[in-house]
Design a protein around this nucleic acid. Structure first.
Length: 291
DNA sequence: CCCAGACCCTGTAGGC
DNA sequence: TGCCTACAGGGTCTGG
């Protein structure tokens, strides 16, 4: 998916519609979208129907709607192709895997369609655990192993640098490790590495503290900028809750730009396969540095 | 523990 | 037109 900016756009779009709303009915069209729910689909529906939502929260690429009573939340992960579309009660969407009809005291009858082509995403009902680093803060159990994202005020920069210094793996692999830093995916990893002039396979531990700081700053910059532009969409697959696309694809410097000129030096951006994905970079600006 | 790779899925685009 | 391949923004599990 959807990386941090796109998930945040969805969260922000859902918040006013779900806060204070109650669930009228649940329809599960494809049980595979409940892979991460601990129990059968009947259990999922039973827990939701009649329950209310009290808000919309996020950590990294995980999204959840806290439920009334405070003991459970509806956890949503969009995977590679998931969407949550906010509709009226008459609207259906192709590839809807789960449908939630809800009622909001102000906005009336609404429908949430969880659409997911590849079914890497999921919905589930989850209980909470305390966070290990901030007293009084809880997250759904399923999210507990996910690190804070770099826009989270409690993100610990020093701890992140310390962990990088102990990793021998390539820096991009580390950036994509959601247990280290969350919310960064393939697009924004490539963009931040391009901006910081770092090769994707540079061993994390060989980065100087200064370059690591630059990289984290660029990660924050690119995530923030994408968020301001409503996220990145190349097609109708990545949209906000109203089905509209973001504009950040116009601002990409490296991702998907193979064969085009590097905006900094004019040489061609190349694409290499890495981790079953593409890595896009400028081989001149972003060179492996031997230590 | 760390690390690399395989795997989970479907739909679409492009080459032949 | 149809067939085939490559490709897609993620997470998790396993074996070394």
């Amino acid at each position: 998916m959807p990386e941090l900016p796109e998930v945040e756009v969805v969260r922000a779009g859902l918040e006013p519609a779900v806060t204070g709303a109650t669930v009228s009915s649940v329809t599960v069209f494809d049980e595979r979208s409940l892979r991460r729910h601990n129990g059968p689909s009947e259990d999922f529906s039973y827990r939701l129907e009649g329950a209310g939502f009290t808000g919309a929260s996020r950590r990294g690429k995980f999204l959840w709607l806290p439920m009334t009573g405070g003991a459970e939340a509806l956890v949503v992960h969009l995977g590679m192709s998931g969407q949550v579309l906010l509709r009226d009660r008459e609207t259906d969407d192709r590839l809807t895997r789960i449908r939630l009809d809800i009622h909001h005291p102000v906005h009336g009858d609404l429908r949430l369609n969880f659409v997911d082509q590849r079914i890497f995403g999921s919905m589930s009902i989850n209980d909470y655990v305390d966070t290990v680093d901030v007293e009084g803060q809880r997250v759904p159990r399923q999210v507990a192993h996910i690190a804070r994202d770099p826009l989270d005020p409690y993100f610990d920069d020093a701890r992140f640098f310390g962990q990088l210094a102990r990793r021998n793996t390539g820096i991009k692999r580390a950036l994509l490790d959601q247990g280290l830093i969350s919310g960064v995916g393939n697009i924004y990893a490539d963009e931040a590495l391009w901006a910081a002039k770092i090769h994707y396979d540079q061993p994390a531990a060989t980065l100087s503290k200064a370059r690591a700081k630059t990289l984290l700053a660029e990660v924050r910059l690119v995530l923030g900028k994408a968020l301001a532009e409503g996220g990145t969409s190349f097609d109708a697959q990545y949209v906000n809750v109203n089905g509209a696309s973001g504009y950040f694809s116009h601002s990409l410097n490296a991702y998907g730009q193979q064969g085009r000129e590097c905006p900094r030096c004019g040489r061609l951006i190349v694409r290499e396969t890495f981790m079953n994905r593409g890595s896009h970079f400028c081989a001149f600006c972003q060179r492996l540095r031997l230590v």
